[in-house]
Computed example of a mutant assay.
Amino acid sequence: MAFQSASATTALAPANPWALVPPLGNLDAYISAVNRLPLLTLEEEQRYAQQFKKDNDLEAAGRLVLSHLRLVVSISRQYLGYGLPHGDLIQEGNVGLMKAVKRFDPDQGVRLVSYAMHWIKAEIHEYILKNWRMVKVATTKAQRKLFFNLRSMKQGFKADAIDADTHRETLSDHEIDMVAEQLNVKREEVIEMETRLAGGDVLLDPAPSDDGEQAFGPIAYLADTAHEPTAMIESRQRDALATDGITSALASLDARSRRIVEQRWLQVNDDGSGGMTLHELAAEYGVSAERIRQIEVAAMKKMKKALVEHA
């Protein structure tokens, strides 16, 4: 995402809002600038979203993006432990933010910050999986969840053992069981993922030997599946479920159930925290926290059924 060079100010310039943000090459200046950009009120967000939706007003879209750049910076910090440049993480997150703005429907009654968070994280996840290693270490949804949680969970444990070959801290049997239980995966999958994360990189395309003979590496046996028809269809289906499917599923709920689901699963505050707790919602509706939980469970089942029908 390219930005034009200019000094950051605290007011949105009507002619060119992008001029407020300095080049991403100067990361400290960029972060300082986006943190000074004013947030939009609900009324302003709705107005700009409607202008973009109905009139394809790109300036309105730019204002929506600008007001949420600080969210991208906040989310990107959560992924600094993978050894990738912070600026690149922000760039990918900005791509996800723009995709969210493009697909955002202001008539659904959900704030853009809640909707955009999922697109930002998805784009950063894809970037990490493609660049952290030459070959992806996570393929299924469960493996991806394990990949993005194992590192942080491992840091919370006190290492009980050191691997004799790699000299890296390894998880004990008890810690492996704890991770498997918390992430709802098999302990064998935890062991495999830890091994893959701790393994060394493999040179896919080795250089020719001294005698001029061509050396063969793993790259010779890898197929390019980037444009494989089945994968492309599955990708489009996932995108449809993430946008139209969720919107349709939410529309199938009554007002109370929908608000509970949005607060529990879709709401994200400026500080990165989630929405309301069961007890807070219980106090609002004058019922018990258990009743709110029952309504939430029923609503999620109804949404799941709606998503299946939509697919």
Rank of each mutant, 00 (worst) to 15 (best):
F3Y: 13
S7I: 09
A8H: 07
P14Y: 07
P14K: 07
P22N: 06
P22F: 04
N26M: 08
N26W: 06
N26P: 03
D28P: 03
A29N: 11
Y30D: 01
I31T: 12
N35C: 06
L37S: 10
E44P: 05
E45D: 10
Q51N: 12
F52M: 10
K53E: 09
D57I: 07
A60C: 13
A61W: 02
S67C: 06
R70N: 13
L71S: 14
V72P: 01
Y82A: 09
L84R: 04
P85T: 08
P85C: 13
L89K: 04
G93W: 00
N94P: 00
M98P: 01
K99G: 09
K102H: 14
F104L: 05
F104S: 02
P106Y: 07
D107C: 03
D107P: 01
V110C: 02
Y115S: 03
Y115W: 15
A116W: 01
W119R: 11
I120L: 06
K121C: 10
E126F: 05
R133F: 13
K136Q: 11
K141F: 07
K154Q: 14
K154F: 04
F157N: 03
K158A: 12
R168W: 00
R168L: 11
S172D: 11
D173K: 13
H174Q: 14
V179H: 04
V179M: 04
A180W: 00
Q182K: 15
Q182N: 14
E188S: 14
E189P: 00
E189K: 10
E189V: 00
V190W: 02
M193G: 05
E194T: 04
L197D: 04
A198M: 08
G199D: 14
G200P: 00
D205W: 09
P206E: 08
A207R: 06
A207F: 02
A207G: 01
D211P: 09
F216S: 11
F216D: 05
G217N: 09
A223W: 01
A223K: 08
T225F: 13
A226T: 15
P229C: 10
E234T: 12
R238A: 14
R238H: 11
A240D: 11
S252N: 08
D254E: 13
S257T: 05
I260D: 01
R264S: 12
L266T: 03
V268I: 15
D270F: 14
D270I: 15
S273V: 07
S273K: 11
S273F: 09
G274Y: 10
G275Q: 09
G275M: 08
M276T: 06
M276W: 05
E280H: 06
A283W: 02
A289Q: 05
E290A: 14
I292H: 03
Q294T: 14
I295N: 03
V297Q: 13
V297Y: 05
A298R: 14
A299Q: 03
M300C: 02
K302M: 08
E309I: 07
